[in-house]
């Protein structure tokens, strides 16, 4: 299975990268370890968005809802339900997937813009509920000091945990993108009408894609809780969703690892710009404008095109 998808060279590079990431906490200061863990979380989230956006062609405008929902689900399962952490970590992404299915049932019948706008609106309802339901979700303060299992409580523990979960999730998503389902999904992106004409039930596939993407967004949500130890309504605010789209665009959304790169750039940029100025959104807005005008295929997409189509093969798809 793995052999069919990756060349020896790609495997070698991946192994080296993984080894470097595993050794990183021995060398780097704690702040950087925290920052890298944040990159993993955000990158996983952006990649899960790109599964439906870049590979499925769905206007997934409010992906952060599934992220925040997963984070809240984990938190509430741990604090209110007192569930054993193992089960809570497994169940929380499933809650996100269920929400994805529910919202999908309402939105998936609509096309492109309608779909996206309705998703933003319905997602905002979820946000508003979390924002106001003080007794259950902590309202706009959120919930802090979440009792996490000891293994992941330290920052290195959280780092290794998110590295492991992120790697496995990326692998699984890569398999899905390259599976028959992924192929059909790309077909729907390119030409839904033609897909129907060859016998594909487009809505069912979009619904399934939505649920899968929501699941992985939920996984990213649980990782966020692990890294930060808290949840708050901003996690499912709609501007975060649009920021995620920027990450996909920045990295290149026809390349699997594009969103990961985009997320890394944005997270690092935000951290360092934040030191100098409080006007981070202004910077982000200008970056986005420049991107739209000058680099619409993203950094990785641009690099791969420059490198020529022959070398683009292993990472592409």
């Amino acid at each position: 299975m793995i052999r069919a998808l990756f060349s020896a060279k790609t495997l070698l590079v991946a192994a080296l990268l993984l080894a470097a990431l595993i050794l990183a906490p021995q060398v780097l200061p704690r702040f950087y370890i925290y920052l890298m863990a944040l990159v993993f979380v955000t990158g996983l989230l952006a990649t899960s968005l790109n599964m439906v956006l870049g590979f499925g062609g769905m206007y997934q405008f409010h992906h952060a809802v599934f992220y925040g929902f997963g984070a809240y689900a984990l938190t509430l399962l741990l604090t209110k339900a007192g569930m054993p952490p193992v089960f809570a970590y497994l169940l929380a992404p499933c809650c996100s997937a269920a929400l994805g299915l529910l919202l999908g049932l309402i939105t998936v019948r609509l096309t492109k813009l309608y779909f996206g706008m309705l998703q933003i609106s319905l997602g905002s309802l979820v946000w508003a509920l979390a924002y106001r339901w003080y007794s259950f979700t902590g309202g706009d303060d959120g919930i802090h000091g979440i009792p996490l299992p000891d293994v992941v409580y330290s920052s290195t523990g959280a780092y290794y945990f998110s590295l492991a979960v992120c790697s496995v999730s990326l692998l699984v998503m890569y398999l899905i993108v390259n599976s028959p389902f992924g192929r059909i999904f790309q077909g729907i992106r390119d030409n839904p009408e033609r897909c129907r004409a060859v016998g594909v039930d487009v809505h069912r596939h979009q619904l399934a894609g939505q649920a899968i993407a929501a699941f992985f967004a939920g996984v990213a949500g649980t990782l966020f809780v692990t890294v930060e130890g808290s949840v708050f309504p901003e996690l499912m605010f709609w501007t975060l969703s649009l920021e995620l789209i920027i990450m996909c665009l920045l990295g290149g959304w026809f390349v699997f690892l594009g969103p990961m790169l985009g997320a890394a750039i944005i997270v690092v940029l935000r951290t360092f710009v934040g030191i100098y100025t409080e006007y981070w959104t202004l910077v982000l807005g200008v970056v986005l404008m420049l991107l739209i005008f000058f680099l619409p295929e993203g950094v990785l997409g641009f690099a791969l095109r420059k490198a020529g189509p022959a070398q683009a093969d292993p990472a592409k798809e």
Binding site: G116, I245, I246, L249, L284, L288
Partner: peptide, 13 residues
């Protein structure tokens, strides 16, 4: 659409 979003970001700040 993303461009109108970038305007939002700039305007708000």
């Amino acid at each position: 659409l993303l461009f109108t979003f970038s305007m939002t970001l700039v305007f708000n700040d």
